[in-house]
Amino acid sequence: MTSASTTTDVVRGISARRWRFPRHVAVFLAPALLVYTAFMVYPLLDSLRLSLYSDEGAFVGLANLRELLPGGSLSSSFWNALGNNLVFFAFHFIVQNPVGLLLAVLLTQHLLKRGKGTYRTLIFSPTVLSVVIVGFIWQLILSPLWGVVSTPLLGLTSTALPTLSLMSVWQFVGIPMMFFYAVLVGIPEDLIEAARVDGANGWKIFWKIIFPLLLPMLGIISIITYIANLNAFDLIYSVQGALAGPEFSTDIMGTLFYRSFFGFQLQSGSTAMGATVATAMFVVILLGVLVYLFGWAKRVETYEL
């Protein structure tokens, strides 16, 4: 009797908790929401707002943004940086995914008896280093002074951007490798065995069974990479400086943002133009996310295993 009434009390307590906003919920949420709102959400919204004002604080509407469009003062820099940035991403997409997948597939082979953990650990190790360190490591190795490579790959407008892109791929290939690995080890053995019994060969099993199961993860990796690439700065700044040389051939959105905001040499810094470039980056990232959500995630089937 007593226990029954206690239980109903608890049940009532739970259902009552459902519809109010009790104090303990506020206490749990407050610290995270305060810091997040004050130092992330507010600055992001405020940056969007600042892009509509001049440096003197006058409302100018979309006039700042128009400077990025053809005919505007920042137009050629902006489109050059955006183009370079998309090339930077394309290198990641085209090189990082197949290499990461190949490594993940090799790591899940039954014939690989010993050393699986060691291979994984070592291949992933460049990922934990700072981009600055990776940039300088490769800068030294590729330096014609050292003579390991005789062509100044980072000094030519034609090769600098591909070289920097591949340096970044070298560093981060461990991430797609681990993500694909996580999916591969989750595929039930029975599924593969069943296909094998039906006479499918390794190649066919990979393309008809394993690959479709990897597609959702390929989408996730690609959108994470896209956002990270559009946000990149450290590598270019460390290796080529804020002017992203030679002749701006490695200028990407992050370095353009930095120069627009702080100014560099002949270019003077501007809060308004910094905020405007940030707004443009926001739009470009948003477009990518929309393409991912509606062009990819909606069409690719996710299978429950």
Binding site: V25, P43, L44
Partner: peptide, 28 residues
Amino acid sequence: YRFTGNTFLTLFLAVGVMIPIRLGTVSI
């Protein structure tokens, strides 16, 4: 807990997973 605004707050925080904080640098 299920409380008023739970879904909104979840979405509010989810936005931060997607948008890089660097874009707010000017105001930060």
